[in-house]
Simulated assay, not measured.
Amino acid sequence: MSGFKKFAVAGAGNIGRFIAEELLKLKQTGVVSSVVVLTRESSAASQSVTELAKQGAKIAIVDYASPSSLASALAGIDVVASAVSGEALGAQVLLAEEAKKAGVKLFVPSEYVIPTEGQTEGALGQKASLHKKLKEIDLPYSLYHTGPFADWIFTPYFGWDLTNNKVTIAGEGNAPVSWTTRRDIARFISHASTAFPREKIEWRTFRIEGDRKSLNQIVADYQAKTGIQLEISRESRAELEAAVQKEPGNFGKAVQLIWDNGGSLVGEPGQLSNTDWPEWNPTSVVDAIIAANPRA
């Protein structure tokens, strides 16, 4: 076991609330002794923060631009798990610096989704630069690459209007993609950070996936499992590339192009960290979609 018992989770939104919930489950069993959720004042009254407080989390309202605010919140913490959003990635630099000063022993950056090694531009470049920062200040990290969130991303914004049984496949749709639910990601992070020995988690990149399927495979499997016939539209690869060129800031189209380029695999099968926890048993992508889109 790592011996880590005191955790801070920075952010309680899209993935952070799941990480905090899984750590709080371990608190109930005595594996974890405390869970602190860092949140901005503007988010302190949000439903997710309120629910985490009810479950036993300590809520620390912080200013991510204030060293003293972060230092106070991080006093005595063993592990910081960052789940800040893309817009707040820059705040992780000061968060890491103050974590090091406070004696934090492990930092889990807000990585997730797409592997960031060697990236230099945009949000992925920001994430990669933080790895260097953590090495400079000698604060060990655990990186988690997971693929897109299978329980969150299949929405009309990304071409999946399941309420109306309509799906638009952008590109060829044949490239395999790594998919993992937020709950399964949180379970793995919480388990690894407590159950694994330190030498197995320090300076380690974990490549985990709940499932590996192309968009075309997902459509076929969803229809077979539910008996629902989907109306499929297709946007050609050329149309998708043109859309990204025309609107470089269109996040949805950019993500769909990454999928079609094969850029959302967390690694080759032999590189996966799933085998580090054989009992993990993550949810399949189709089961995640069905659970996130229940039928009356």
Rank of each mutant, 00 (worst) to 15 (best):
G3P: 07
F4A: 13
A8S: 13
N14R: 05
E22C: 09
L24N: 02
K27W: 08
Q28V: 15
T29R: 09
S33P: 00
T39M: 04
S46C: 08
Q55W: 04
G56S: 10
V62P: 07
P67K: 01
V80C: 02
S82E: 01
E87V: 15
V93P: 00
E98Y: 01
K101S: 03
A102C: 00
K105F: 03
P109K: 00
I114E: 11
I114N: 10
G122P: 03
L130Y: 00
K133C: 06
S142G: 11
S142R: 00
H145S: 11
P148N: 10
F149D: 12
A150K: 01
W152V: 15
I153H: 09
P156F: 03
T163V: 14
V167A: 11
A170G: 06
A170V: 06
E172I: 14
G173F: 12
N174P: 11
P176N: 08
S178Q: 04
I185C: 04
S193D: 12
F196Q: 11
P197E: 13
F206Q: 07
R212K: 10
K213S: 08
L215S: 15
L215C: 12
N216C: 05
I218R: 04
T226Q: 07
R237E: 12
E239S: 15
L240H: 04
A243T: 14
E247F: 15
G252S: 13
A254T: 14
V255D: 03
V255S: 10
I258H: 11
D260F: 08
G262F: 07
S264R: 11
S264H: 13
G267Y: 03
E268C: 00
Q271P: 04
T275D: 14
W277F: 15
W277S: 14
T283C: 07
V285I: 10
D287G: 01
A292C: 10
P294G: 08
